[in-house]
C-alpha cells in the first residue's frame, strides 16, 4: 500500500489554490520522492489524525487498512510531497481541468533541478465529492502517480488521494509530515 505525506503548509497551498480558482476547477502538480519498505513500523490509529490532515477512508474506517491491520513497513510505499506547483486550468471550466502544458513543463524542470520527480496531480471538484470522476479515471496518465482530489462542495475543503491503475481506483492515506514521522519512525 501507499501513503502520501503532504506537509501541512503544502496542504494549505493546494487548498488555497483550489479556492482561488473558484468557480472554475483548479489544478497543479505534486513533486517529491518515493520510498518503498524500510521506513519504520506503522502504528497509526484513526483517532490520532487531525481534521483536514487525513482523507483516507481506509484509515478512517479501520485504523490502518480496511481490515484493521497495522501497516507493515516492508509493504509500504511512502510518497513524500516536497513541493506543489499550482498550474493554470487550460480548460477554464467548472467541470473539467487540463494542466496548462507550459506549467507542466515548468513544474517538471523545477522538480528535476531540486532532485525530485513529479509524483502526482491535484485538482478541485467544485460541486462533487473528493473522489475521481469517470473522466479522471479515464484520463489518468500514469499508474505510478498520486491523484489528489479536493472537494469544495461542503463547508470545509476535503482533500483525498488515490492511485488509479488500469481504471481501478484505490484510496491512500494522506498524512502530514508530523504524523508521518511519528507513525513511520522517521
Amino acid at each position: 500500500m501507499a501513503v502520501l505525506v503532504l506537509p501541512q503548509a503544502l496542504w494549505e497551498r493546494v487548498v488555497a489554490h483550489c479556492l482561488d480558482g473558484l468557480p472554475m476547477e483548479a489544478c497543479g502538480l505534486l513533486a517529491g520522492v518515493e520510498r518503498t519498505g524500510g521506513v519504520g513500523p506503522g502504528s497509526i490509529e484513526a483517532g490520532e489524525m487531525g481534521a483536514g490532515e487525513v482523507g483516507a477512508g481506509e484509515v478512517g474506517a479501520g485504523g490502518a487498512g480496511a481490515n484493521g491491520e497495522r501497516w507493515r513497513h516492508e509493504d509500504l510505499t511512502v510518497a513524500e510531497v516536497c513541493e506543489v506547483y499550482p498550474a493554470a486550468n487550460a480548460a477554464l471550466s467548472a467541470r473539467l481541468y487540463t494542466v496548462e502544458p507550459k506549467d507542466l513543463l515548468r513544474a517538471d524542470r523545477a522538480a528535476e533541478r531540486a532532485g525530485w520527480s513529479l509524483i502526482g496531480v491535484w485538482h478541485s471538484h467544485t460541486h462533487s465529492p473528493a473522489y475521481p470522476s469517470p473522466t479522471d479515471i479515464a484520463a489518468a496518465p500514469d499508474p505510478l502517480w498520486h491523484y489528489v482530489v479536493v472537494s469544495l462542495s461542503d463547508t470545509e475543503p476535503v482533500l483525498r488521494s488515490y492511485r488509479i491503475v488500469g481504471g481501478q481506483v484505490r484510496e491512500e492515506p494522506v498524512l502530514t509530515r508530523g504524523i508521518a514521522a511519528r507513525a513511520l519512525g522517521w
Partner: peptide
C-alpha cells in the same frame, strides 16, 4: 524534445 502526458480530468 520533451514528451509529457496530457494531465487532465474532470
Amino acid at each position: 524534445v520533451t514528451l509529457m502526458p496530457a494531465v487532465a480530468g474532470g
